[in-house]
Design a protein around this nucleic acid. Structure first.
Lengths: 148, 148
DNA sequence: CTACAAGCTCAACTTAACTTGAGGTCAAGC
DNA sequence: GCTTGACCTCAAGTTAAGTTGAGCTTGTAG
């Protein structure tokens, strides 16, 4: 394989549409990696563009950086991830995504199940009660968004 | 219509699964409303349970409180919202939701379109380039999540 | 070889969405 | 009639996800 040209942070920022500061931030969080030039400047391989794209897309649908990071760690660090690797990653998210998709659909379709059935009482509601262990903990400390 | 019993903040917290402090917070943000007893305690009508349920569901799929608040304001304040009202609300979100659903599906299906086509270069990518006006602004200040 | 755009680090600020705590009030049971 | 748990308000703290700025270094174009 021919050596493909590496990218500077500025170039990655341009091409990915995220700010340089965000790239620094993602790197600090371990979501992307770079190596340094002799002058201590970051250089990125091409696959960083895919990673960043995934990060932004996943974020837009409400997945936290922590979760995204965990998923990205399933990618091989030693070699450039193949298409197979990426597919594996996304299937790992499938349950999570399926749940969100169905919630979105219900919301979109007028929440018919819930609003129609008058079951809003949390412990019965089929929509709210999927995996919803939080309410069992009673009111009190909880994460900003449901984990899982 | 018979007078239905009103709920205290604690009861709403129990039944909805959100903390009392969060209910106070939602009220301060104008997402829910209450009236007060002579002793200055909050009392809620039954429909608050639906409102709260909607809030939590919408949040879980990445809609901000500001957006949710805007949508909830489309509900009538003078009377208890009917099922029709709720449906109207959710259809108002349809575009937003449809976009999110399709993004989720792409993510779930292995991002085949994008990863397969090698088009991650932001200005061409069909997945990232839907409504994505942010990158055109160049790196710099931007909202935490796409406003859309 | 020098200017100046692009990088670097680190600390502090920002926004959203709540939670926690302090200090005080209300009300239902014994 | 008093105690105890639920409420109240308001201020301050917290977490996530970045951004902004200061002060300093690199590297490339003229």
């Amino acid at each position: 394989m021919a050596q493909v040209k590496e990218l500077t942070v500025g170039q990655v920022a341009m091409r990915s549409g995220v700010a340089v500061s965000a790239l620094h931030f993602y790197e600090a969080r371990g979501l992307i990696r770079s190596h340094r030039t002799s002058g201590n400047q970051r250089r990125y391989g091409r696959d960083v563009l895919r990673r960043v794209a995934i990060i932004r897309i996943a974020q837009e649908v409400g997945i936290s950086l922590a979760e995204i990071g965990a998923a990205l760690h399933s990618l091989p660090e030693s070699r450039t991830p193949t298409r197979e690797d990426w597919n594996l990653l996304s299937t790992g998210w499938r349950d999570n995504l399926d749940r969100k998709i169905s919630q979105l659909k219900k919301l979109r379709d007028g929440l018919t199940d819930c609003i129609g059935c008058g079951c809003m009482s949390i412990d019965k509601c089929p929509l709210r009660n999927k995996e919803d262990r939080l309410s069992a903990d009673g009111p009190g400390a909880r994460r900003l968004l449901v984990e899982s």
